[in-house]
Design a protein around this nucleic acid. Structure first.
Lengths: 103, 103
DNA sequence: CTTGTTCGTAAGACATGACTTACGGTAAGC
DNA sequence: GCTTACCGTAAGTCATGTCTTACGAACAAG
């Protein structure tokens, strides 16, 4: 739910691959594991981290669990980034001012 | 420069603290290290990672190096996130549709 | 009730990376 | 020129996290 967790979760390349695969739509764990170079339990562990970060959610469907993207974590990350982006642009403008003309 | 590097760089809490400290404005390495619970070389190493990710830039000023935020890496991250955010909202809407009314 | 899927968790091996101290290099001040 | 301040890099130690195999639980099918 916090942007820190989202950043930590999305840092790992394999976990990011899991997350990006969910972009194609909701999928069960086995389906995800079939297209990834890791074992199914490893996918489950990654999904747990993504779920704790608020990046994915799951629903039960028989014995299978369907995972899909959760906007919450993504939103938290986006808010933090936007807020940072603004001050960064200001600082960049001030820096450009400083290097070009110096009173 | 790529969003993968930016995510990896911002995942570490200490490195994120270094980055967020630069939000207050350009600062030399020693100044950053003074307010952080790690040694100065550690700060240098973190700055190197941030620099490679396009998140910060440095300029020489005497024997000191002033670091400031670089919008490039932040922009790459933002573009990736926005693009993801869109599809996530669509998927979320479709999911809401699915769970509410079922024909 | 038994069998077969699908999945999550536990335990352990292993790699990755973050931090420290030690060292060298560059610029400023006297 | 000599000393001092500031910084980056190298080497080594140590913790964190990712992967595997093994096991048990929940549900559907027969």
């Amino acid at each position: 739910m916090s942007y820190e967790q989202a950043l930590t979760a999305l840092a790992d390349p394999t976990r990011r691959a899991v997350f990006e695969r969910l972009r194609a739509g909701p999928q069960p764990v086995g389906e995800l594991a079939r297209h990834l170079p890791i074992s199914r339990p490893a996918v489950s562990q990654h999904l747990k981290v993504l779920k704790d970060a608020g990046l994915v959610t799951d629903r039960a469907e028989g014995t299978r669990r369907i995972y899909h993207i959760d906007p919450h974590g993504l939103g938290a990350l986006r808010r933090w980034l936007d807020q940072f982006w603004e001050t960064a642009l200001d600082a960049f403008a001030a820096e450009a001012e400083r290097t070009s003309d110096k009173p």
